[in-house]
Write a protein that binds this DNA or RNA. Structure first.
Lengths: 196, 196
DNA sequence: CGGCATTTATACCGATCTGTCTGATCAGCT
DNA sequence: AGCTGATCAGACAGATCGGTATAAATGCCG
């Protein structure tokens, strides 16, 4: 027992873990804080001591999802240096994401669908969308196509479409791979029209 | 006063109108039946007399949305006989849909995001998705491409992507038109690979 | 006119919600 | 040992939820 590890996670971490599971599975609005503190094995007072309220807890849950997904994307992109492949790697990350048994749609789109949202929650969603927009725009610029904005817009639609279709239809992974195929097609067309 | 019209709509119709506005704007779960009966100007008993419960009212709301959107699609398609144009007309209908000031995402995707859902609600969502799948598949077959299923899958992703991106980003109409552009591209590619 | 279905207004039920508060206990640090 | 911040268990508040019950009023149709 020389190491400091092997201890039970802090109430804060347990609350975040329980929030991630319940908020995502049952929806933000449908999940009561009583269910969260029970699953986390934490007193109600600790929730309000650490987060201040449900809205902040929801925001923290979304921020965690944001960071985790961003990390997945970066890992998938790290395997290549080609700008085109970096774009397509995003759809590989999406394919893995939607293939998980617990996949239940995009956490941010789901949260946004449950109006009304608290201020912190809205901010977390906006942060995610800004990151997504910037990511696609940078990648589009790196490809060297003439209209990088148009390419970024197209990729965003394919990304959102992959997640939405994967949730609503069967064959989640196939939906992501189809989106990847169209992305490759769109990329090629954008390059062709650039050199013209 | 010879005509039978000019009368106040029935409680059932008033409830459906109020449900459509409130369920869509604030979400199914967040909207209480008290808010609906108040907006409809109807006694609470009439709601349960006509619908039996909230779940059935939600299902009726979704069925109304389904029928209304299907009608819009059919009207947009009626302007042409070309199979390709019939496909692209769907995205024109989507463009109009997402351009409305009150647009707040796909009603069915939103409702599905708010777990848990009642049985009738789930059925209504499933009906919609089945109609969507069949519609795209028939259209894809009519184009004469070899892999009509693959084309239908691609169109579904573009359709879902247009609605999702239109909700989460600014420039809703532009998102739908971008989806239409990619649909045209995908259609051309499918035809090219068919003749090969 | 009589009868039936519908609508109305309102009170009520049990459950659940977020959030506050209290008071004891625990753990780490000096 | 003693102080302090963190956590605990639980009671409580105030509001809202979906749904039920009741009794009177209304409208339509034969």
């Amino acid at each position: 027992m020389a190491t400091k590890a092997a201890k039970r996670p802090s109430p804060r971490e347990r609350l975040l873990a329980a929030s991630d599971e319940l908020f995502y599975r049952d929806g933000v609005h449908s999940t009561g804080i009583d269910a969260i503190i029970e699953k986390a094995g934490v007193a109600k007072g600790s929730l309000y001591y650490n987060f201040g309220g449900k809205d902040a807890l929801v925001a923290a849950y979304l921020q965690n999802r944001h960071n985790a997904f961003r990390q997945r994307v970066e890992e998938a992109q790290a395997r290549t240096d080609d700008p085109d492949e970096k774009i397509l790697a995003i759809f590989d990350a999406v394919a893995d994401y939607v293939s998980e048994p617990k996949f239940r749609g995009c956490p941010f789109t789901n949260a946004a669908a449950e109006a009304p949202a608290g201020e912190s929650q809205q901010l977390a969603i906006k942060d995610y969308r800004n990151w997504l927009r910037q990511t696609f725009l940078k990648l589009a610029i790196d490809t060297g196509v003439a209209d990088s904005q148009a390419l970024a817009d197209a990729l965003t639609i394919l990304y959102d479409g992959a997640l939405a279709t994967a949730e609503m239809n069967s064959g989640a992974r196939a939906a992501a791979m189809t989106a990847k195929r169209i992305a490759r097609l769109t990329l090629a067309a954008a390059k062709a029209s650039s050199s013209a």
